[in-house]
């Protein structure tokens, strides 16, 4: 599909990939870190304030830091991707730790008593029980990722944000609105996807809600 002289499909694909890969990558990194913060007081003392500080750094600043630290080209989409990955990790480490903290001790002890080993306890009991809190964290990370991806357009990284910057330069409101509406629509579509995934992974919560 073409509009305003742009290949919209290509912008949408770039937008989705650049928003979603960091969210998935961030989740994968945050799980072991969050588990570590849940188990070790020392790790938590370092990880939680560190994530807080990273989350505090404005996106445009972080996008500028990455090429300097990693030596990537200033126009590389990797800068935006890594920025969003850092935000996702920063947001989710605490979510994961608190989700695991929230598993009642009686449940963990009961699982140990019926013969679960530590790895089985984590994967078979604690993580599944933590899914609702994890899904909530993932949804927040995902929605903000879809909106922050557009900031990359300021340093030449293509996404639906390109319609906003170029629309501004050309004084073309319809183009800007298309970028905004598209970005919001994509955020909502993936939000619904995570919500559905969370529900599918916790059939017991549906059963309880049905009573």
């Amino acid at each position: 599909m073409r509009a305003f002289g742009y290949d919209i499909d290509q912008l949408v694909i770039a937008h989705v990939l650049l928003a979603i890969i960091p969210v998935i990558l961030g989740m994968i990194i945050a799980l072991p870190l969050g588990w570590w913060a849940h188990r070790s007081r020392g790790a938590r003392r370092v990880l939680v304030p560190l994530s807080g500080a990273l989350y505090t750094i404005p996106s445009l600043a972080l996008i500028v830091f990455i090429p300097v630290v990693l030596g990537t080209p200033i126009l590389s989409p990797v800068n935006v991707g890594l920025t969003l990955t850092i935000y996702t990790v920063a947001l989710l480490v605490r979510s994961v730790a608190e989700a695991l903290d929230a598993v009642p001790a009686s449940v963990s002890l009961a699982a140990l008593a019926v013969g679960y080993r530590p790895a089985g306890l984590l994967l078979g009991v604690q993580l599944p029980l933590a899914v609702p809190v994890l899904t909530a964290g993932l949804r927040v990370a995902s929605v903000s990722s879809f909106s922050l991806v557009t900031v990359g357009a300021l340093v030449g990284i293509e996404s639906l944000g390109t319609l906003m910057t170029d629309g501004f330069q050309q004084d073309y409101t319809a183009m800007v609105v298309t970028g905004i509406v598209g970005s919001i629509a994509l955020a909502f579509i993936f939000d619904a996807l995570w919500l559905g995934l969370g529900r599918a992974l916790t059939p017991w919560s549906r059963a309880r809600a049905g009573v």
């Binding site: 879809f146 909106s147 357009a153 609105v177 919001i184 955020a187």
Partner: peptide, 11 residues
């Protein structure tokens, strides 16, 4: 929260 900040500013 889903509003893209850049888009809102430009608009």
């Amino acid at each position: 929260r889903a509003l893209p900040e850049l888009g809102v500013l430009v608009l």
